[in-house]
Design a protein around this nucleic acid. Sequence first.
DNA 1: CAGTAGATGCTCT
DNA 2: GAGCATCTACTGT
Length: 190
Amino acid sequence: MTKLPLSWFEGTNVVEIARLLIGKIIRTDFDGKLTSGRISETEAYAGVSDKASHAFGGRRTARTETMYANGGTAYVYLCYGIHHLFNIVTNVKDVPHAVLIRGILPLEGEEQIRQRLNKPNPIPSGKLATGPGLVSKALGISTLHTGILLENTITIWEDGFHPERIEITPRIGIDYAKEDKDLPYRFLLV
DNA sequence: CAGTAGATGCTCT
DNA sequence: GAGCATCTACTGT
């Protein structure tokens, strides 16, 4: 198992990176509570030219500033007042690309994950944490972690796993993005 | 099962 | 003041 270096996220093709992230492992280590999961669903947000992106048209605000950071930075923000959505910034500094992590299959710390999700009893194998809000909740990620580099408490790992088949579809919940809403930027492990 | 309502708070106009 | 890169609980079959 090897940790992906920050330079891995500095690639210029955010769609390619979103696809390559399928099957990788995301791990968090907060307060000695280790949890990890295999990434099963991602979406690419392609910066200033992508109407679905917060940084469309080069918008820079207090919230989106993090998207302009160097690749390998965590971008976490609050949606619908409740849900903390976890993204990985890609590309070089000042190019606001990001990949949203929408689903994981829990690996380590299942006990801890069940506690965080308030699922006391069984583990219905497979889709324990699908949906971007639940991914953050399961791993204990919140908006407090926006702007940090993926090198200590939050890290991405590569083991020998190779996805057999990846499904590609349009992104979810972005109808407002008009002509960009049907771009095939969503990747799922099947 | 499917379908819908309501929660909830920050960001940008 | 509107609108979200959503989830849960509750309804009714």
